[in-house]
Design a protein around this nucleic acid. Structure first.
Lengths: 339, 339
DNA sequence: CACTATTGCTCAAACGTTTGAGCATTTAGC
DNA sequence: GCTAAATGCTCAAACGTTTGAGCAATAGTG
């Protein structure tokens, strides 16, 4: 499985390694290598399928033509799609992508980042656990090319691309209100992520602004690894006489699917007994028993934009930090009643 | 972003690089380095957070502690889940994973494989395009540790882990027959993949075995990048008087979802007018308007098994080739009627 | 005391590149 | 015919490791 090396071409052609290296890197003219020698080298290299060893190359030039992507979980459809778009976009500029899932674990995130730095990645895209302030700070201070996506550190100024959460939630709340629901519950995860907090805050503010009280019990937060039972339990609470929620906002598409599953099981009619909306979209929401009204957002675009900014940052270490927020779109279906 | 090197420790501690290398690789005792020196080195290394440069290391030892995974598309949920399980399992043995999507393109697969070899991966897991016989042959001939998953080359003996397609399709056909449907159509993709061919063949055989004729028009194959219209068109064909299909098998979960979408749009009642089953499962099939009967299979397990075999193969270059097929499970819901 | 063993290291080559400095040889200019 | 410039390369260090061979100093043995 070994390929031919510069040394071998050198002895075969009786030309120094330097000459060969210069020629194959397109610096032959600049280095005034004769056209004959250049041709000879190029032909031999092609004939023997010479490929420079990227390790040796990287070791010396300190670059690798790779960008690293650190993400929570590659099996999460949201991140898988972003990964693909990053991969595509990076490839167009001649970069390869290495990725690593952290499983929302801080230590794993630290390890992944270190490992990528050790491997000389030229830049990093990070969907952080948001528990790793130390590394993010270190990277920014060292002016290492980096862009955060989806997850952000409020106290650190970095490149960032994410979603306009506030706009999205506002649309959901107001859609529910327009459909005649005033008592609206909010189901989220009890993870301390800025995106989720923004969604929660936006929910509360929009409710207030529209004169809807956010009663105790309206807001429910589940564990990341919740069970179907957990979901049923909190829905039961929100449906109780004293709370009496008539509309539900799920703060992620996964929660929404789990929620619908629970409602089905509990025989609660959507939208008659309960209107439902989802922040975040899944491909098959339109095929559900009651097609689900949801906020959709551009996913591939997040990855592409991140690569764009990263490439800029790699060219200009001192560039001004860039933040980009994608707007979301409300897709109205039938889960809040017909209009 | 630079870390400390052996050289720097060497000058700081006035001890040769070799000694340090031996100690930090746990060969201190073997090399009879005094306990004092060992401690000194270890403390200094820890204090200065020394991390051996994997590039330099890999360049010389020819290994990288990485395994490569070449797959069609990381945004395909099936492969994303497998990737995650490979990543997890590999990490348990101290390996990292690099992956690359081929987009079902032969050249890209060749490039990805070469790039991974150039980066000294210690082994490869490949879900091939099945158009790259050359590389697979080259790898096997060079005894490079490798296991193919999902996609197989009939003429090359390799490690392989995949699905028992025949068993799965048999279950689907016979379920439909048990539900009173005799005229069963089969919708697949016109890609030349062994898995898909196995499914098709199994469909034909099972039909025959059960005395059901496979009429012209029963089998429809769509492009990989088909549109909703394409799907509606072929369903229309199969529903036509002369063909009159009363049950449909979709050979992948994505086709199934697209098919259901088309049936809904065309106002065809499932299961009354058309029974539907899917080979392959999606998380939300149970939430569909008519919950979908489908074949489910262990996905994460495919990745885990692949890593198991790969690690074995990496230990023993000459090991006997291993093939492993996971059995599938029929999940009966309502899309073929009640029982 | 002479010899061997043991202890505790060091040396230098190797992996496959890149790259600034330099060195013959030829050609040009006067 | 002499100097200067141009031509066409080569040298060797560097990147940060690993590793077999070897060497000086001390300890042990008879």
């Amino acid at each position: 499985m070994k390929t031919i090396s510069l040394q071998e071409i050198s002895t075969a052609l009786k030309v120094s390694k330097s000459t060969i290296s210069y020629v194959l890197n397109g610096r032959g003219d600049e280095k005034r290598i004769s056209i004959n020698t250049q041709q000879m080298i190029e032909e031999y290299a092609k004939a023997h399928n010479y490929k420079p060893n990227p390790l040796a190359r990287s070791l010396i030039v300190g670059k690798s033509n790779m960008i690293g992507f650190v993400l929570p979980n590659i099996a999460d459809f949201f991140f898988a799609r972003i990964t693909r778009s990053i991969e595509k976009k990076a490839m167009q500029s001649g970069y390869e992508v290495v990725f690593s899932s952290t499983g929302e674990d801080k230590e794993r995130e630290e390890k992944s980042i270190q490992s990528m730095l050790d491997r000389n990645v030229d830049g990093l895209i990070i969907a952080s656990t948001q528990k790793n302030e130390k590394d993010i700070l270190r990277l920014t201070q060292n002016k290492f090319p980096m862009v955060l996506i989806d997850r952000k550190y409020p106290d650190i100024s970095t490149n960032f691309v994410g979603l306009n959460n506030i706009g999205g939630i506002t649309m959901l709340v107001e859609h529910l209100i327009n459909m005649g629901r005033k008592k609206i519950g909010f189901v989220s995860l009890n993870m301390d992520l800025l995106t989720l907090n923004e969604r929660l805050n936006s929910y509360e503010e929009t409710m207030k602004r529209n004169g809807c009280e956010v009663k105790k019990g309206f807001i429910q937060q589940l564990e990341y690894n919740h069970t179907d039972n957990d979901m049923e339990r909190i829905i039961k609470i929100m449906l109780s006489k004293s709370i009496g929620v008539e509309g539900l906002i799920f703060s992620t598409q996964f929660l929404a699917a789990d929620g619908i599953r629970a409602l089905n099981k509990m025989n609660i009619k959507v939208p008659t007994d309960m209107a439902v909306v989802s922040y975040g979209h899944k491909n098959d929401f339109d095929l559900f028993k009651v097609p689900l009204t949801a906020i959709d957002f551009p996913v591939e675009e997040i990855g592409e934009k991140a690569v764009d900014i990263l490439l800029e940052n790699m060219k200009d270490i001192n560039m001004k930090k860039e933040e980009f927020y994608f707007n979301t779109e409300l897709i109205v279906r039938e889960s809040c009643g017909s209009h």
